[in-house]
Design a protein around this nucleic acid. Structure first.
Length: 282
DNA sequence: CACAGCTCCTGGCAGC
DNA sequence: TGCTGCCAGGAGCTGT
């Protein structure tokens, strides 16, 4: 599933090609792909707009237009693929939307599970207002993270997955960051020490930066804008490695359901002290 | 406030 | 071989 590093990789790929391009045509294959406004209004307002910038906010791809914003959320299986223009080309399998540009370039939104969404809004805040801190921004410091953690009494994993707290982390990189920081996914957020917050902050940034430099993690569905795959899957420490040996201590990686999500961790490197369990309250 | 459970979707896979 | 049915999983929502 695309998380921050995958979206960042896609954004970089799109930026090189789309800035300055004018939308000359737009089509929708699955109307519910458009979250807002209605599909007809979406098409009507989008055609004729020019792409001014391509950025990322959390897991959103943000196309800044000469008037308004086009946001894309890929959710589970969404892909944004650039291709040469061919108005008569048949739709790709699972293609849900298509944009054509003045130069002839085309952008295909392909999404097997139909969870991905497009948003055409007048201001950035219409989509991003409630999103949490960007983990690769300068403001993401150990102190800031500690404030976010200790002001809540929640399990670490669901808290880190909450886009309104930290924007951009998903199941893969939360598991990887917690392993790197040596923290149990069920650890209660308000029990972390200064040093543990610092470890988590640095681990999260390290994991994300490494993944971006690898072009993202490709497990099954992710592709970048040029339909290429990322290489980061080869170096994952825990995600998808249940039953295998921990790369640090050799103990078998476990899988548990936490907050409804499949969660992988090393029971030795990520211990849960009895006094800090979420449900025993010390 | 925290969190469990449901919804949306479909390909992939286990079980029979 | 072929069918049934379960599962993953991001995010929004409801219920407890």
């Amino acid at each position: 599933m695309p998380e921050l590093p995958e979206v960042e990789t896609i954004v970089r790929g799109l930026r090189a090609s789309l800035i300055g391009e004018r939308v000359s045509g737009a089509w929708i294959g699955w109307p519910r792909t458009v979250d807002c406004p209605s599909a007809p209004a979406f098409l009507h307002r989008l055609v004729g707009r020019t792409v001014m910038n391509v950025t990322r906010r959390g897991k959103f791809v943000c196309l800044g237009l000469d008037e308004g914003w086009l946001f894309v959320h890929l959710r589970m299986t969404g892909r944004l693929l650039l291709g040469p223009g061919d108005v008569h080309a048949p739709w790709r399998p699972y293609e849900r939307a298509r944009l054509s540009f003045g130069s002839g370039l085309e952008l295909h939104f392909v999404d097997v599970r139909k969870f991905g969404r497009l948003y055409l809004v007048s201001s950035r805040g219409d989509v991003c207002a409630n999103l949490g801190i960007e983990p690769l921004d300068d403001e993401f410091t150990p102190e800031a993270l500690q404030r976010l953690l200790t002001s809540r009494r929640r399990q670490l994993k669901p808290l880190l997955l909450d886009q309104n707290v930290v924007a951009g982390l998903g199941n893969i990189y939360v598991d990887e960051s917690l392993w790197r920081a040596g923290l149990h996914p069920l650890r209660r957020s308000d029990t972390l020490t200064d040093i543990e917050c610092r470890r988590l902050c640095e681990a999260t940034q390290q994991v994300l930066r490494t993944a971006i430099s690898d072009g993202g993690t490709t497990l099954r569905d992710y592709r970048n804008a040029d339909n290429g795959s990322g290489s980061h899957g080869d170096v994952l420490a825990v995600y998808g490695r249940e039953g295998e040996a921990c790369r640090r201590c050799g103990i078998t990686i476990l899988r548990e359901t936490v907050g409804g999500r499949g969660t992988r961790y090393c029971p030795k490197c990520q211990p849960l002290c009895p006094s800090q369990e979420t449900d025993e309250g010390a």
